Amino acid sequence: MLYRRKTYTVEPVMYETFTHFFHTYLLPNQLTHGAQLVGRWVNEERTEIMAMWAYDNRAHYETVDASIRASEMHAEAQNYRKSLAPLFISSNEDFFTSTGNYGQSPQIVAVSGYIVNEEGHVLLVRNNHRNDTYEMPGGRLELGESLKEAVKRELLEETGIHAEIGDMTGVYQNITSGVICMVFRGRAVSGVPAAQPPETIDVQFVDFDIAQVGDWVKRPQFASRVDDARNSDTIAYESYEVRPYRLIERS
């Protein structure tokens, strides 16, 4: 892996504005084109912000960077910056390679929910950083919470929906990014589906049959999760790679 450290020197009064810009433009554009965010930090004085990004290698970074600079979102971001006071005083970037994992697991645990309403319609979201497809809502597990608690939290954060969570329907391993996602069935109990910026840009209950899944869920690794949750009484397992997508194992 290649790691890129990007550091910004900012005026403290511009910290919130910079953070909004980061979450609205920088982060979604990086994720859309294949970068991974390792973390983002700010010092106590809020005068220095540091983000660490991960790429497969130097060639992957150069491809991601070129795609971002050619994107519509990048053009929108630059136009929006013209309406603001200077976001930062100066910036710097440098590159690193890892000297080892030192016992820390590189795997990430995530959850997702197949949530239906009283009519049996399925809750789908379109994320800012994956706006080419709809998918089931979900996200990373946080320290100290159970899997089902994480599903409930992610649902509320992404859609505004409260739900009861039932059985697990599948386990899905993204070999490329190290993400292991567990999917659960659930039932919406309250709330009105609504986009929750900057994370989601569209949220709705969708009525479709099995033949129409691909009309909404464009990425195969997400479509199979919907199919499994709809049709199986057992727990599915699937492992795959992305960039490009390749199914490795399924049972």
Rank of each mutant, 00 (worst) to 15 (best):
Y172S: 06
L147P: 00
P197C: 03
N174D: 15
D227W: 15
E199I: 12
V217D: 09
D227V: 12
E149P: 06
I235K: 08
M168D: 05
Q212H: 13
I175M: 15
R140V: 15
F222W: 09
R185K: 13
T159R: 01
E154F: 04
F222Q: 10
V213C: 02
L141F: 06
L156M: 11
D209S: 14
G178N: 03
V189T: 12
M136T: 08
V206P: 06
A195F: 05
N174S: 11
F205S: 05
E142G: 06
T234I: 06
L143H: 14
E142N: 13
L143R: 14
I201E: 08
N128E: 08
P193W: 03
R153P: 13
N174Y: 08
V226A: 03
L124E: 02
M168L: 11
N231H: 10
D202L: 00
L155T: 05
D209L: 00
S224F: 15
I201T: 10
T200W: 01
Q221E: 13
M168K: 14
L156F: 15
W216E: 05
V179A: 08
A229H: 03
R140A: 15
D227C: 11
N127P: 09
E238K: 12
R219N: 10
P137F: 07
L147A: 07
E238Q: 14
G214D: 13
V151K: 05
K218R: 14
E142K: 11
M168S: 11
P137N: 11
A163C: 06
V122Y: 02
G144F: 10
I201S: 06
V189N: 09
L143N: 12
Q204V: 01
V183L: 10
H121S: 04
I180N: 09
Q212N: 09
F184P: 03
E149M: 04
N174F: 07
K152E: 13
R140F: 07
D215P: 04
E199Q: 13
Q173H: 15
L123I: 00
E238A: 06
S190E: 13
L124V: 02
V125T: 12
E157D: 11
E135S: 12
V125D: 10
G138D: 03
C181N: 14
V151G: 01
Y134C: 02
K218S: 09
A188I: 03
R130C: 07
P193S: 10
N127I: 00
H162N: 14
F222M: 10
E154T: 04
S146N: 12
I161L: 01
V125M: 00
K148R: 11
F205C: 03
P198C: 07
F208W: 07
T234S: 12
G166C: 01
S224H: 13
I161G: 01
E142V: 07
E145H: 11
Q173V: 15
Q173E: 15
P198E: 09
E154R: 11
A150M: 02
M182L: 13
Q173T: 15
D233N: 14
I180D: 10
V122D: 05
T200S: 04
